[in-house]
């Protein structure tokens, strides 16, 4: 695919998205979109490792929470500027990803073992943060309200929305760039047949380490943005199972291993959640139960997710659902 054909659809969709606040100024819609974009961003992180690399993590909350806590604590304890804290949180998240990846991939953990160990890491992080006074325990960390752009806090929802969209845009473009890079090709080779990739001279450990570091960095960015938006984080919100699940649901429902998958999936999840709420009222857990059903149905009948379905129906936009997993 030539560069214009690869990147033009992305830029067009981002431009369309950026115009949303000029169409509506409803805080409810914008708020819904911001939370959707946070899930999408976490999903982009998951998709790099799980979608392209075939390594299914069940504990991406470890990175989300790390990003959120790093961003909040650097500001609160060390007085670091919010933007610097945000960038540092992403780096720290990537570092944690590298360490977890190094430990598990070096020991040759794959498949369900890898899923288990990531789940355990997220749980260890949650318990440690919950029990330690350094992280403020179960009470969580509250950021001081000081709405200045220089402080990564905005008075209007629209500004938050544009920043979130920008972050998702970076994730989308990076994913597309990855698809076109050597690393992307190596990753897909690892996903399809790790032993064969190794035999052909791919340094599989290095490939997987690069993937998990990038993956963790994007998910950490989602966590750091979350804390800037809500100005609050606690162990359950940061490291709980629900964010790990949402991070993997978005790409799987949208289209595993595709550039648009996490965004489409996050929007679908959001709409599905709204629909359940509209139909059933605010029953706790009803939306998640439906997501679970959706996950099983997608795996049973449409492995390529929503994008895969669209392209199978022949209505797929070119370059959008071009390389859906079989």
């Amino acid at each position: 695919m030539s560069a214009p054909r690869a990147f033009a659809p992305i830029l067009m969709i981002l431009a369309l998205g950026a115009a949303l606040p000029f169409v509506t100024s409803s805080n409810i819609i914008l708020n819904g979109m911001v939370t959707t974009l946070i899930v999408a961003l976490a999903g982009y992180g998951w998709n790099l490792l799980g979608g392209y690399g075939g390594q299914f993590s069940f504990g991406h909350a470890a990175f989300f929470g790390t990003g959120a806590y790093a961003c909040a604590l650097l500001q609160q304890r060390c007085g670091v500027n919010a933007w610097v804290a945000f960038a540092s949180a992403i780096t720290i998240g990537g570092g944690v990803g590298f360490i977890i990846g190094y430990l598990s991939f070096r020991s040759g953990l794959r498949g369900s073992y890898f899923a288990l160990v990531t789940l355990a890491f997220a749980e260890v992080f949650r318990i440690v943060v919950n029990a330690s006074s350094f992280f403020n325990g179960a009470a969580g960390v509250l950021l001081e309200l000081d709405a200045r752009p220089g402080n990564f806090q905005f008075a209007s929802r629209a500004a938050y929305y544009e920043v979130a969209l920008g972050l998702v845009g970076v994730a989308l473009l990076s994913t597309r760039a990855l698809e076109r890079s050597r690393l992307g090709a190596y990753l897909v080779a690892v996903r399809e047949n790790e032993n064969a990739a190794k035999a052909l001279g791919v340094d599989t450990l290095k490939t997987k380490l690069q993937a998990i570091s990038l993956s963790a960095a994007f998910t950490a960015a989602a966590g750091a943005f979350y804390v800037q938006y809500f100005l609050f984080i606690n162990p359950e919100l940061g490291f709980g199972a629900s964010i790990s699940i949402e991070a993997l649901l978005a790409p799987i429902i949208g289209g595993l291993g595709t550039a648009f998958g996490p965004l489409v999936g996050a929007v679908a999840l959001h709409e599905l959640g709204e629909l359940t709420q509209w139909l059933l009222g605010s029953l706790p857990g009803a939306d998640m139960a439906l997501f679970g059903v959706f996950l099983v149905l997608i795996i049973a009948f449409a492995r390529g997710g929503i994008l895969g379905l669209l392209s199978r129906l022949g209505r797929g936009v070119h370059g959008m659902a071009g390389e859906v997993m079989p």
């Binding site: 075939g54 299914f56 498949g111 029953l283 857990g285 998640m288 679970g292 996950l295 795996i299 049973a300």
Partner: peptide, 22 residues
């Protein structure tokens, strides 16, 4: 497919847990 089983059982657990919650 083993990876599918992983996700299907995860999906089942989400459904059961949240139906109980509801």
């Amino acid at each position: 497919d083993d990876q599918n089983v992983l996700l299907v059982t995860l999906g089942l657990s989400i459904v059961i847990e949240n139906v109980l919650l509801t």
